[in-house]
Simulated scan of single mutants.
Amino acid sequence: MSEWKAFTVEIADNVAQVTLIGPGKGNAMGPDFWRELPEVFAELDADPQVRAVVITGSGKHFSFGLDLAATAGTLAPVLVEDAKAAPRTEFLKEVRRMQASVTALAECTKPVIAAVSGWCIGGGLDLIAAADIRLASADAKFSLREAKVAIVADIGSLQRLPGIIGEGNLRELAFTAKDIDAARAERMGLVNEVFADQEAVLAAAHAMAREIAGNPPLVVQGIKDVLEQRTSPAIADGLRYVSTWNAAFLPSKDLPEAIAAVFEKRAPQFKGE
């Protein structure tokens, strides 16, 4: 395997463990993450020794989501008042590139199990929504946080979560941007099972991955291909729509206010302008 800046990859017993390592605090998703994620999963997909994948976070948390400081340059051109077609087009391309990074995980022919501990926020939720199975430790917390920072979530949660947690639960999480604990996540079907702590959930994820790896690999991959066919066209259409919507309507006075409030650790004052 290659060496990565945002991940480590270990392979044993036909199971690969992909670990988010930052470099941002709480494994926040910066430029290295978005560039490397599809490369990591392309290598795993091509490796015949890998039959299942476990993805997890280093340290106490899965991921704090998008690294706002590191990716501010992506938003800056469209925050200019009366931004024209050129910066909006570049923003559209960047969003679609980030979408494709997460979709690379969903399209991996090997089943992917997410083992979540601590915070899983925003982009972290996008990432685990693209996994096949999600497990959590009792201290895990989840948040579809984008509304609080004046962003329409555009990397996959709004497209993939309806089939996982249902429309009502998704709309509650998206409209409120509230935090939920592992117990609530299990009740709504976001995670299959909750375990005592980080060590236990990672052990359970590996046990499940080894169980999957013990089955005929081409059959397992065929099952995933058939299951993905039911949903992937609608997800692809939804991703294109939201990227286009955000390129047109995301710029607002509320967006820089939300970002400033995050860094200044204060409540934002939204005006709907």
Rank of each mutant, 00 (worst) to 15 (best):
A247P: 05
P87I: 00
K5A: 12
A72F: 11
K110F: 00
A140I: 02
Q198E: 14
K141Q: 13
A150V: 05
G156H: 07
V102N: 13
V191Y: 03
M208T: 13
V242W: 01
F7T: 09
M188Q: 06
S117F: 07
N246L: 01
F249I: 08
E43R: 06
T89D: 15
A131P: 13
G124T: 02
E43K: 08
V152S: 09
R160A: 04
A213G: 10
M208C: 10
S2F: 08
E81W: 12
S232K: 13
A16N: 03
G156M: 04
I165E: 06
N169C: 11
R187H: 08
E199L: 09
K25G: 13
M208K: 11
I151N: 12
S157I: 09
E10L: 11
A174G: 09
Y241K: 12
Y241C: 11
G22R: 02
F91H: 04
A138H: 12
K224M: 02
T74W: 13
W34E: 02
A261Q: 07
I11F: 05
A86G: 15
P217S: 03
R145L: 14
A247V: 01
A260L: 14
I151S: 08
S63K: 02
I155F: 10
A196H: 13
P251L: 01
T74N: 13
N192I: 15
E146Q: 08
V226M: 09
G65F: 03
L173C: 06
C120A: 02
P111T: 00
Q49T: 14
L255C: 03
V80Q: 10
E186K: 11
F263Y: 10
K271S: 15
H206G: 13
K84F: 11
L190H: 07
N27H: 04
E264L: 12
R134V: 10
A85G: 11
D179W: 14
F62T: 05
A248V: 13
F91Y: 08
P77L: 00
A261L: 06
Q221Y: 11
E81A: 12
L161Y: 05
K60C: 13
A140Y: 09
A183S: 13
L170N: 06
A16K: 04
A100V: 10
S101E: 08
L92T: 01
I113R: 00
Q229E: 13
R88I: 00
